[in-house]
Computed example of a mutant assay.
Amino acid sequence: MSSRKTAVLVCPGRGTYNKDELGYLGRHFPDPALLAAFNAERAAQGQDTLSDLDGAERFSLARHTRGDNASGLIFAATLGDVLSIDRERIDVVAVTGNSMGWYSALACAGAVTPSDGFTIANTMGTLMQQALIGGQLVYPFLGPDWVPDPARKAALLEHVAQIDAREGHVLALSIDLGGMLVLAGNETGLKAFETEAEPVEGRFPMRLGNHAAFHTQLQGPVAERGRAALPESLFGQPRVPLVDGRGAIWWPHATNMAALRGYTLGQQVTETYDFTRTIAVAAREFAPDLFIVTGPGTTLGGAVAQSLILANWRGMGSKTDFKARQDSPDGTGPLLVSMGMAEQRGLVARQ
Rank of each mutant, 00 (worst) to 15 (best):
H64N: 09
R66N: 11
G67F: 11
G67S: 12
D68I: 12
A70F: 04
S71F: 12
L73P: 00
I74M: 07
F75A: 04
A76V: 06
A76S: 14
A77P: 02
A77N: 08
T78N: 11
L79T: 03
G80A: 10
D81K: 07
D81H: 12
D81N: 13
V82W: 14
L83I: 11
L83Y: 10
I85K: 07
D86I: 07
D86P: 03
R87W: 07
E88R: 14
D91Q: 04
V92N: 05
V95S: 00
T96A: 05
G97F: 02
N98V: 12
N98E: 12
N98L: 15
S99Q: 06
S99N: 08
G101K: 07
W102P: 03
S104L: 08
L106H: 01
A107W: 00
A107H: 03
C108A: 08
C108M: 07
A109S: 01
V112R: 02
T113V: 09
S115Y: 09
S115V: 14
D116N: 11
D116W: 03
G117K: 00
T119K: 13
I120K: 06
I120R: 05
M124P: 03
T126V: 10
L127K: 09
L127I: 13
M128D: 12
Q130N: 13
Q130V: 11
Q130P: 09
Q130E: 15
A131R: 12
I133C: 10
Q136P: 08
L137S: 04
V138I: 15
F141Q: 04
F141W: 15
F141K: 02
P144D: 15
W146R: 13
V147Q: 13
D149F: 01
D149S: 05
A151V: 14
R152I: 05
K153L: 10
K153C: 01
A155I: 07
A155F: 02
A155E: 11
A155Q: 05
L156T: 07
V160S: 06
V160T: 03
I163V: 15
D164Y: 07
